[in-house]
Amino acid sequence: MIRILFADKPENRPRYEGPLTRAIAQTGIVAEIVQPGETDPASVDYIVYSPQGPVQDFTPFTRAKAVLNLWAGVERVVGNETLTQPLCRMVDLGLERGMVEYVTGHVLRYHLGLDATLAAQDGVWRHDTGVPPLARDRSVVMLGLGALGRTCAEALAGLGFKVTGWSRTPKDISGIDCLSGPDGLHAALARAEILVSILPDTPGTTNLLNSETLALLPEGARIINPGRGTLIDDDALLAALDAGRVGHATLDVFRVEPLPPEHPYWAHPKVTVTPHIAAESRAETASEVVAENIRRGEAGEPFLYLVDRSRGY
């Protein structure tokens, strides 16, 4: 029997216990799921981990074969010097579909001009304001072409949008104009009528959208950020909004969460704040990913979604 430590907040255990137990049983593995304090750390084979859980020192877990993160982001654990075990990030169908629906919904909202339409419910029939272009004539740029970014880019291309994707390293995705590197970033931003970021939080992405790069956007560009709050220089974005360089921003992630009540984003007329809801790990689908990685660990097969420590994701 293997021992699995569920190292999330205790109140989350009931939500995961049933799905995780079923998913592991389906692999044929016999396992015991325990919480911190219920067993000797040296007896733990796998750690199902959340950064908001009680485990921050991995030193005692001398037998653990892997740390299986329940979150897509690993920025809060990847730099932990006590973590010597393999670290796997979460990529699951529920999280993926949630992100696709969030991104697609807000891209269509901007594309169709729904904010202005809904704000003008005053009894005046405005039929002379023009119609939006077709999706094929709208340029959407996706920053980040990992598992989530690629899926979102493909969904938007499937709706007919002209989609450009940018990533640090070259990618080749059918139907997506893929750019990379610093020159590729500048070229991508220059065509971004609607800009979506699903980049991870790494030293290389911090303040990637700053006064210099925001100035490359087409006048009135829209920004959607369900990736990481550190991507954006907040002061630079507010200045770009005030100057009209950026027409509107929908932000789901922030440097400080919950976003403080006094933060200027709350009251800004060109900002939509959503409370980090774009993509959540679902217990059922996340448990399937965890169970598959445990099966792989026991079979000596490569783990899914193994984090590259040198890249930070």
Rank of each mutant, 00 (worst) to 15 (best):
R97N: 14
P41D: 13
R228P: 08
E11K: 10
F58S: 10
A64S: 15
H248S: 10
N207P: 02
T21N: 11
R296P: 07
R136I: 08
P10L: 03
V290L: 14
E301K: 12
T272K: 08
P302Y: 00
E301N: 06
T104A: 15
P275K: 01
S139D: 15
K9V: 15
F61V: 09
V271W: 04
G18E: 12
V124R: 14
L231K: 03
A72M: 12
A283K: 00
G165L: 10
R311M: 11
M99H: 03
W71T: 15
E154I: 09
V55W: 05
V107L: 08
A147M: 05
A299P: 02
R245Y: 09
A279I: 02
P54L: 04
G123E: 10
A286R: 07
R63T: 14
L20K: 01
L112M: 14
E17W: 05
R255M: 15
P10I: 04
Q121G: 11
P86E: 04
D128N: 12
R282N: 12
V196L: 05
G220N: 12
L20V: 00
G204K: 04
V253R: 08
Q85K: 01
R222K: 13
F61I: 08
G184M: 06
L83N: 01
Q85P: 09
D242H: 12
K171Y: 11
L145N: 09
P261R: 06
E219S: 14
M142L: 13
L214C: 08
L114C: 08
L241W: 02
N293I: 04
I33P: 06
N69D: 12
K171Q: 15
E262R: 13
T274G: 10
R282D: 14
P269Y: 07
L217Y: 01
Y305Q: 11
R126G: 04
A7E: 07
D40N: 15
V124L: 14
F61G: 13
S310Y: 00
A119N: 11
A299C: 01
V74A: 06
L241T: 09
P275S: 08
E11P: 00
L179W: 01
Y313Q: 06
N207H: 15
N207K: 11
R309Q: 03
L185Q: 04
H111P: 07
T117Y: 11
P36A: 10
E96N: 13
I277D: 08
C178S: 03
E212W: 00
L93I: 11
P60Y: 02
L214T: 04
M90D: 06
V273I: 05
A135S: 02
N12L: 14
G244H: 10
Q56Y: 00
R309Y: 00
V140E: 09
R109V: 08
V307P: 02
C178T: 12
Y102D: 08
L143N: 01
A243C: 09
V34D: 05
P10N: 07
I29W: 04
V253A: 09
P14S: 03
Q52H: 07
N293S: 02
G227H: 03
H276N: 12
K270P: 06
V44P: 05
R150G: 14
H127A: 15
I277F: 07
T82E: 14
D234I: 07
G28Y: 06
P302R: 05
A243T: 10
Y110W: 09
H263C: 12
F303P: 03
P41C: 11
S310H: 07
E101G: 05
L114F: 09
V273K: 00
S281C: 14
L179T: 00
R97D: 14
E17H: 11
A153F: 12
V273C: 06
T206L: 14
S50Q: 02
